[in-house]
Amino acid sequence: MPYLIVHEEGCIGCHTCEMVCSLSHEGVINPDLSRIHVLGYKGEKFPVMCLQCEDAPCELVCPMGAIHMQNGVRMVDDEKCIRCKMCTLVCPVGGVLYDYINNKMIRCDLCGGDPQCAKYCPMNVIEVVPDDAVPEARKRGVRVLYGEAD
């Protein structure tokens, strides 16, 4: 499964990704239920979604063992999940959210291999890269997020 990386410097803050994400997953236009979110950080805007961490805090903290990697995507087992939302609390990028309509935890599932946000992003800020590339760009994105970038 491919990864998504974000070239944050090109983002124009148009929220198109949120629109198509909620539209394709939930069938409604509601940025609140989008799995990708445009953050406002020190006046800059850029999208953030689940980064499919290798040593994922959400997986470590889940008391039910409901979160696991499946074909390179971290999935939530709705049967096991008790919706305690601990994963939301520990995720450093806000990648896991509670869907209050369908009563389940939602997170980026890479649209089964064809991420719609990347397809619709007008500035090509969101890029799909193969999973064997652990790109420098993504590491940089995380550093920017924590204010350590150049």
Binding site: C81, I82, R83, C84, K85, M86, Y98, N103
Partner: peptide
């Protein structure tokens, strides 16, 4: 208590 939605 986490006050889970689907509390076991």
């Amino acid at each position: 208590c986490r006050h889970c939605e689907d509390a076991p």
